[in-house]
Amino acid sequence: MRRRVLPGVAAAVIIVVVVLGSAFALQRKLVFLPSGGPPPAAADVLPGGRDATLATADGLSLSAWYFPVPGARAAVLVAPGNAGNRSMRAPLAAALTARGLSVLLLDYRGFGGNPGSPTEAGLALDVRAARDFLVTETGLPLLYFGESLGSAVVAELAVEHPPVGLVLRSPFTDLAAVGRAHYPFLPVRWLLLDRFPTAEHAAVAGAPVTVVYGSADSVVPPGQSRAVATAAGGRAVEVPGADHNDRVLLDGPDVVAAVTALA
Results as ranks from 00 to 15, higher is better:
residue 5 V to Q: 10
residue 8 G to E: 07
residue 8 G to T: 03
residue 17 V to R: 00
residue 17 V to I: 13
residue 21 G to H: 05
residue 22 S to R: 01
residue 35 S to D: 14
residue 39 P to A: 13
residue 48 G to T: 08
residue 49 G to V: 05
residue 49 G to R: 01
residue 51 D to C: 06
residue 53 T to V: 15
residue 61 S to W: 00
residue 62 L to Y: 09
residue 64 A to M: 07
residue 72 A to N: 07
residue 74 A to S: 14
residue 75 A to D: 13
residue 75 A to N: 00
residue 81 G to P: 06
residue 89 R to S: 12
residue 94 A to V: 03
residue 95 A to D: 10
residue 97 T to S: 15
residue 99 R to D: 08
residue 101 L to P: 08
residue 107 D to S: 14
residue 116 G to L: 10
residue 117 S to V: 13
residue 120 E to A: 13
residue 125 L to P: 04
residue 125 L to G: 14
residue 126 D to T: 13
residue 126 D to H: 02
residue 126 D to M: 04
residue 138 T to V: 05
residue 143 L to D: 02
residue 143 L to S: 02
residue 143 L to P: 02
residue 148 S to G: 04
residue 152 A to H: 00
residue 154 V to F: 12
residue 160 E to R: 08
residue 165 G to I: 02
residue 167 V to H: 12
residue 171 P to I: 14
residue 171 P to Q: 08
residue 179 G to C: 12
residue 185 F to A: 14
residue 186 L to T: 05
residue 192 L to G: 13
residue 201 H to M: 11
residue 204 V to H: 14
residue 205 A to N: 06
residue 205 A to C: 03
residue 206 G to S: 08
residue 207 A to H: 08
residue 211 V to T: 09
residue 211 V to N: 02
residue 221 P to N: 11
residue 225 S to T: 08
residue 225 S to R: 02
residue 230 T to N: 09
residue 237 V to G: 09
residue 239 V to A: 10
residue 248 V to T: 14
residue 249 L to N: 12
residue 250 L to D: 14
residue 253 P to T: 12
residue 259 V to P: 07
residue 262 L to I: 00
residue 263 A to L: 05
